[in-house]
Design a protein around this nucleic acid. Structure first.
Lengths: 342, 342
DNA sequence: TTGTAAGCGTTATCAG
DNA sequence: CTGATAACGCTTACAA
């Protein structure tokens, strides 16, 4: 049977108040009594019921982090960043994984916000706050991250990739490329849409017609099917744009496997993030997102809102940056890869 | 101000008991009253305080999962598996990340087990239960996973890699390789030690002297430093063994980058897991761990222990399997890679 | 310095 | 079918 504070009090021959006070250092207690209490705790193997405490105090010292895909390195680095910050303030970060499933996200948000955590950071799969408004108590501390929701008056921290992608594509064009492929994803549209739009705009604004066959949309929660890639790469593109980290890893790996040597047979700009080895970063241009910064800001912000709840929309937009590879090897732009790709 | 059940009762003109009953479907309530309650809930925007409920019930419907490195695909796939199982039983899986830090693990275990969760699955950084015994209440439902602890009478589910690694190394030897390098990690020793031991034993038992220079130990929580790899690969090995997934990714990437073509210049056996693209799996032999099975078993087991706490050690050992690549290209065994590695 | 007792929001046991 | 009310384990005025 679990022992309670009352048991401890009895064994120590004091009152529960005293026990509570020695546990929380909230009043000065004689050393002798203090010792008696400690002894009693020891013999009873007493552990305070944190749940009773939280209930009484109305505070949990926990923060929830809702992510759509825990296996994506973008989110796992984010998690590590956030954890680093909140742990310092003695908060426990509870991570829940929605698996890109809106229904799950709703349920999990509901549970987290009804007493499990003091505040929650959400990388949502929804694009409209009205879809989840009813599961979140009014003025509950929430920070949305990575994706902006419509009709939402919560703090939101996102990364704009428009300029970076535009710059990256433009660079490819300036190198002479005309057939530039682009692989995007079908999920989390608001983030990927912006990037795809940058690609489209950049191409068009450089007087190249957008060839829809060069645009491939894949399920970013799965590995890309090799057959799909094989079919796609028959379109004789001389350069590629990969619109997120998992796409980059998969497509890059595929192409290398097929004998493509980047910077020679083909140019590419892709996403780096964690999980990447330097060899790849040196082979292609990358777009680097300020993940650490976003994590830090989100963590700081949620802590602030917990301390000081306030109904105020505050939207922070960080900028991804385009990082060209160091030594861009000379490349004959319109030349088709020497090693056939298929 | 947050509204309570009492407020709802007042607005609906009923008693708190009634409100509770309509909320929990625990007694038959007239439709009219039921509707009045629903209306009151609606107008007050009432959400039950889950914390008060949990406190009262002594049950959380949550399970904790303590992992050392959330960014490692081994653990993230495990998380997804476990989540799949427990979610079906209406449990919320709370993932906490210890970042391979024993002190953090201890604190987090302490907090989780003192009321936050009903049971906990732990991939521990400790190797001795006595180090954490005092933070876990007696007979609290715990399932250890991936790593076995000394002095521990909890359920434990591990994967034995000895046979698989032995088989893999043996295969390399049978192919004619004599200088077989091995990269291992300095953390989570009990798991990696077994694998390293398999390597050593296999080599020795085939009358090859173990060359300590061929064994490299790296920090598995970081990317492997390229300079370290460069130095290491001067030792003219003709085949490699990579003892976990992150090592495999890093070293494989490095070597490919340096122009090595696996199955031609070099043979290797490594770890696959998620996060891998097929191109790599086809290039080297892999050791495949039954991650999904481990996750499912662990989840089922913790649920069982929560329902029916029992002090009984039960140790389950799953077996990793060696999976040779399909078409092993002809390879001149002792030939040094044509492309210099450095 | 220590003890008494109220109360946090629910659930559940009784009566009505 | 519905309503009082005790109880869960703890914190915290306030009293002694």
């Amino acid at each position: 049977m679990k022992s309670t504070m009352k048991d401890v009090a009895v064994v120590a021959g004091v009152s529960v108040a005293t026990v509570s006070h020695v546990l929380n250092n909230t009043k000065h207690i004689t050393d002798t009594i203090r010792q008696r209490v400690y002894d009693a705790i020891e013999t009873l193997n007493y552990k305070p019921n944190i749940n009773a405490r939280n209930f009484k105090m109305g505070k949990q010292q926990t923060i929830g982090f809702v992510v759509p895909d825990i296996a994506n390195s973008f989110f796992s680095t984010l998690i590590n960043e956030v954890e680093g910050v909140v742990a310092k303030q003695d908060y426990l970060l509870l991570v829940v994984n929605t698996q890109e499933n809106p229904e799950m996200e709703k349920q999990q948000l509901h549970r987290l916000t009804s007493g499990l955590v003091d505040g929650v950071i959400v990388a949502s799969t929804f694009d409209d706050y009205n879809m989840i408004r009813h599961v979140i108590p009014n003025s509950f501390p929430v920070v949305f991250i990575d994706r902006k929701l419509k009709n939402c008056s919560c703090d939101t921290i996102v990364i704009s990739n428009y300029n970076a992608v535009y710059k990256g594509v433009e660079e490819l064009i300036l190198q002479g490329h005309r057939r530039i492929g682009c692989i995007t994803g079908s999920q989390r549209l608001s983030t990927l849409d912006e990037r795809l739009q940058a690609y489209r705009n950049c191409v068009t604004e450089h007087n190249i017609e957008v060839d829809e066959e060069l645009i491939l949309s894949v399920d970013v929660t799965k590995k890309i099917d090799m057959e799909v890639l094989a079919r796609y790469f028959t379109h004789k593109m001389t350069a590629m744009v990969f619109l997120n980290n998992t796409i980059t890893v998969d497509a890059f790996g595929y192409l290398v496997h097929k004998g493509v040597v980047f910077s020679r047979n083909m140019d590419a700009v892709g996403y780096s993030d964690a999980g990447w080895h330097e060899y790849a970063i040196n082979a292609i241009d990358v777009i680097s997102q300020p993940i650490a910064e976003m994590g830090n800001i989100a963590a700081a912000r949620i802590l602030e809102r917990i301390d000081n709840p306030v109904v105020k929309k505050d939207e922070i937009v960080l900028q991804a940056v385009y990082v060209p590879r160091q030594q861009r090897a000379p490349v004959s732009p319109v030349e088709f890869p020497k090693t056939p790709i298929n």
